[in-house]
Design a protein around this nucleic acid. Structure first.
Lengths: 108, 108
DNA sequence: ATAGGTACTATGTATTTTGATAGTAATGAG
DNA sequence: CTCATTACTATCAAAATACATAGTACCTAT
């Protein structure tokens, strides 16, 4: 039997990915932002199924984890833009692959 | 602006993938089973951080979603083997990619 | 007759995650 | 002075998820 302990270790890559991207809206947000920078209001209008509070929370967590960048323009009314970082961009192919797998195989 | 409504649709591939693989142990279980068929007891011993009840639940859900196969041998004491289906195998590269991305980029 | 191994199953509880609702700050327009 | 706009922030309730614990069924070996 091969060494199985490498699986399920609490600090393995897969577990970390789950922790960072586990939120209900995070993959969707990353996917959306892959189209380019977006203002908070645009994001909100694109995700009417959830609340501002939830979006703010998830966006801030993604920012903390360095997957997205948050830029504040000092104007009134305020303007805040979110965009993918290089790290976020690197994850994008995986999101695409997940979506494709889902589209191809979960028709029911 | 491009058409954004394709994102976040409740039946898009990405959302379905999240629903099916969202459980805390599912990705880890799939990854573990990619090494080959495993008996319930082996799985349990490999995941001591959680309970039998939780593992049973997640394995059954994966079975329902056709990602794994459950084979019961009519012997005493009972022997039940779990293994990846073709569909599960097709998802495996994505799991690998996630783990690699995590290992490479989440060193902290 | 009893104990042991394997794979569950049932039930209640705790924890985490998400949602609903209302309120804040800054400033310029009228 | 009041209103509108934008991007939050705070609080509490609801729902989903996970955990702890105990019990079951089956046959076999002693």
């Amino acid at each position: 039997m091969t060494n199985n302990t490498k699986f399920h270790l609490p600090d393995c890559g897969l577990t970390k990915v789950q922790q960072i991207l586990g939120g209900k809206w995070k993959l969707l947000l990353l996917w959306y932002l892959s189209e380019g920078p977006r203002r908070f209001g645009e994001i909100r209008r694109c995700f009417p199924e959830t609340t501002e509070a939830m979006l703010t929370k998830q966006l801030r967590e993604l920012e903390q984890d360095k997957l997205i960048h948050r830029e504040v323009f000092k104007v009134v009314p305020p303007r805040v833009e979110y965009s993918l970082t290089d790290l976020g961009l690197k994850f994008f192919p995986i999101i695409q692959a997940m979506n494709n797998w889902g589209e191809d195989n979960l028709k029911d």
